[in-house]
Design a protein around this nucleic acid. Structure first.
Lengths: 147, 147
DNA sequence: AAAAAATAGTTGACAGCGTCAACCTTTTGG
DNA sequence: CCAAAAGGTTGACGCTGTCAACTATTTTTT
């Protein structure tokens, strides 16, 4: 760590984002899943009767991008689209069995990375690190606090 | 946080990567810089007489991809390519004044995000969080420890 | 009840980005 | 001196997400 212009904190944040993110393992989350696809899959898993747009919201994609990523997941066999009977405009996206499996193995992959990371920082207690990770995720998700 | 398949830790890691990363602010790091471009710029800044390939190494890109990203930065006016006199194969990439400026403002942007994040987690002490962030970055960078 | 506006989703055209493979140039090593 | 290695570039390509226009259903206005 050095350099007057970029602070160490910035560099660390980028390092973390880069390794945890798109270039973490080898450009893929797991199997043939990109990171946005994984996030989409998780969103679909946790949202009952998930409309296509909701996927877009959680990824900060346009609705067009949402359609595209859902279609891609459908082509891969991880997801099904079903029109609702209450409102024929809405497409409910549902996980397939295969989709659930891939979600499971991706989870395992992330846990592995977490364990490797923890193993590389023996000077700190695990619970300690976990506490900070939870707080960071929560704070980042909530965004800038409403003033 | 809920859901039996994806563990909370995995979800947190992804949350962190996603917000710190490509979709953090609005798809850009700062100005008109993508995240890889910013990493490249920092690499160029910290490496004296930086060859094009070195940029590729730090991004895990092919040498072709390295050429492309350096060219893009050159077109934006952040960087210059100069052939070495010792070895005419090598292109030294150097930051321009404009490149330095953009690096500075991007740094400010990351610090801001860090401060916002910290503000959203008042239950933990700042130094505490910083310690964990440094350790995480270091551990992730070093990769799986050599057994 | 009819017209207007809003909502959900899709699609064609497009641009950005990184890879692959082939290629040029310069250096190195036998 | 020639073959191999190394640094870099380029054309073709595929993947991704956006934009704008469009269809099809509600919902709201009047």
């Amino acid at each position: 760590m050095s350099g007057a212009v970029i602070s160490d904190i910035s560099r660390c944040l980028i390092e973390i984002a880069w390794h945890l993110g798109p270039k973490g393992i080898n450009g893929e989350c797991c199997e043939n899943l990109t990171m946005p696809e994984f996030i989409a899959l998780d969103k679909i898993f946790t949202t009952p009767n998930c409309p296509v747009q909701d996927v877009g919201y959680s990824l900060k994609f346009t609705k067009s991008g949402a359609t595209r990523i859902v279609n891609r997941l459908e082509k891969k066999g991880y997801v099904n689209k079903i029109r609702t009977m209450d409102d024929a405009r809405i497409c409910c996206v549902k996980l397939t069995k295969k989709g659930l499996q891939v979600l499971e193995s991706t989870n395992a992959r992330y846990l592995k990375q977490f364990e490797d990371m923890i193993a590389g920082m023996p000077e700190l207690s695990d619970s300690h690190v976990i506490q900070v990770i939870f707080a960071m995720a929560k704070s980042l998700k909530n965004g800038v606090p409403i003033v």
